[in-house]
Design a protein around this nucleic acid. Structure first.
Lengths: 217, 217
DNA sequence: CTCATTGGGAAGTGCCACTATCCAAACACC
DNA sequence: GGTGTTTGGATAGTGGCACTTCCCAATGAG
C-alpha cells in the first residue's frame, strides 16, 4: 500500500507519517522506484502502535524511538529487552538526594521492597527509573505534610502487584514468543492509562457512595 | 516572608514563582507597600502543591489553575467540588464516535460498569472524562488486535476500586473537613504517579521472577 | 502531452513552561 | 543624604516538542 492508503487506514495524517519516518519511528517502505514506496500490514500495525504510545500513553516521540529500539533488539534476551524498554520510558525529574524528604522517601521505599520480598531483584530495582519515580512521588507527598504509615504503601503495592500479575498472565496466554516483548511493553504503556481511568472512575463512584452527591450539605 | 525566601524554602526559582503568580496559580502576597509584598506559610504550601502537580503529576499549568479554582470554590458542596476538580484534569483526545473500535469499547465499558454495580452514578459516570479516557485506551488496544475478555477488565477494575477505597480512607482519617477536597485531589494527582511507579516495579519483579534475568535464553 | 499525485526534505507554526531583561521604588549602610 | 543593592512587577525572549506547510522533481493516469 502507498502512503495515502497507510494514512487512511491508520487515521494518521500523511505529513505526520512522513515525520515519524524521518524520526525513525517507522521503517521505510519497500522502495519500488525512486519516487514510490510500498508499505505492508506490518507498517500499519507499527504505525498504530506508535500512535497509541504517543496519544494514549503520552510518550514523547524520542522515547518511542528508544523503546522500539529495545523491543526490536533481537540480540538481547527477552527479560533484558523488556527491562530496557521499560527503563527508557519518560521519567520524573531527578530527585535531589540532599533533600531530607527524598532521603526519607528512600528509606520508606527500601523498607517497602523488603516487606514485599522484592529484594531478589533489589540490586536492579533500586536503580530502576520506576524506583526513582516512586521516591520522587513519595517525597512530594511528604513535603506537603502527608505522612502515611508503611502499611498503606504496602497495600497499594500489593494491589499493583496484582495488576502486574494480570498483565503478565495476559502476555503469557495471548502472545506468541516473538510478540511477548511488544505485548509486555504495551502492557506497561497502554494499560496504564486504562488503570488510571479506572482509578478515577472508582474514586468518583466511591466518593458518591460515601458522601452522596452533596445535595444535603 | 519575601519572594526570595519563598523561593529558597520551596526550591522554586524566583522567576518561576513570578510566572505562577501571573498565571493565577498562587494568590498575590499581602501588599506591604508599592514595592514589597509579604507571603506566609499558606503561600509556601500552595506553591509546593502547584509544583508537585506540575512536576510529579505532569498537570499542565492551565489545568492546575482550573483544578485549584474548583478546590477553592466554597460555594459548591464537597463531592461536586471534588468531581469538578477531577474532571478538569487533562484528558486524552476526544474519541471518534464513528470508529468501530470506539463503539465496541463503549459497549465493553458499559457492560463493565454494569457488572461492577457502579450504575448508581452511571448517568454521571458515562459522561465523565475518565470514562472517555477508558474508552480511548480500550479502543487503542483493540485496534492493535488485543481482544481480552471482560473478566480481565473486571479484575483490573476491582483492583483500582481497592486503591480508591484506600485513597478515601486516607482522606477520611487524615484530613480536616476543610482540607478534604484538597487531599482528595492530591490523592488523584499525586498518588497516581506513585501507583504507576509501583506498577512498573511490580512488572519488573514479576517478570524477573517468571523468566529469570535471561541468562539461560 | 498534460497534469494531478507521489515520496521526501527543509523550514515554519503553535503551544507551553519557563527565563532574562528592564524598571522604578524602597531599603540598608555609611 | 547619598549610593548601591534589593524588591515586585511587566514585557519580551528562549528552547523544546509535535507536528504541518511548502516546495521539489519524478511518476503515472488519461
Amino acid at each position: 500500500m502507498r502512503l495515502a492508503e497507510l494514512s487512511e487506514r491508520s487515521g494518521v495524517p500523511i505529513a505526520t507519517i512522513k515525520y515519524y519516518l524521518r524520526e525513525g519511528l517507522l521503517a521505510p517502505g519497500r522502495q519500488i522506484n525512486a519516487r514510490t514506496a510500498e508499505y505492508d500490514e506490518e507498517h500499519l500495525r507499527r504505525l498504530r502502535l506508535v500512535r497509541a504510545m504517543i496519544q494514549v500513553g503520552r510518550v514523547p516521540v524520542a522515547t518511542v524511538r528508544e523503546v522500539l529500539g529495545h523491543v526490536d533488539d533481537d540480540a538481547l534476551p527477552r527479560t533484558i529487552r523488556l527491562g530496557a524498554a521499560l527503563w527508557a520510558l519518560p521519567q520524573v525529574p531527578e530527585p535531589d538526594e540532599d533533600d531530607e524528604y527524598v532521603r526519607g522517601a528512600h528509606d520508606v521505599a527500601d523498607e517497602l521492597l523488603e516487606s514485599l520480598g522484592w529484594s531478589n531483584a533489589k540490586a536492579l530495582v533500586t536503580i530502576s527509573p520506576s524506583y526513582r519515580s516512586l521516591v520522587v512521588a513519595m517525597a512530594a507527598l511528604r513535603r506537603l505534610g502527608y505522612d502515611w504509615d508503611p502499611q498503606l504503601l504496602l497495600a497499594y503495592a500489593r494491589l499493583m502487584h496484582g495488576a502486574a500479575v494480570l498483565d503478565l498472565d495476559f502476555v503469557e496466554t495471548h502472545a506468541s514468543e516473538a510478540e511477548k516483548v511488544e505485548t509486555a511493553v504495551l502492557g506497561a504503556i497502554l494499560v496504564e492509562p486504562m488503570l488510571q481511568a479506572l482509578h478515577r472512575l472508582a474514586q468518583e463512584e466511591e466518593s458518591a457512595r460515601r458522601y452522596g452527591f452533596g445535595e444535603q450539605e
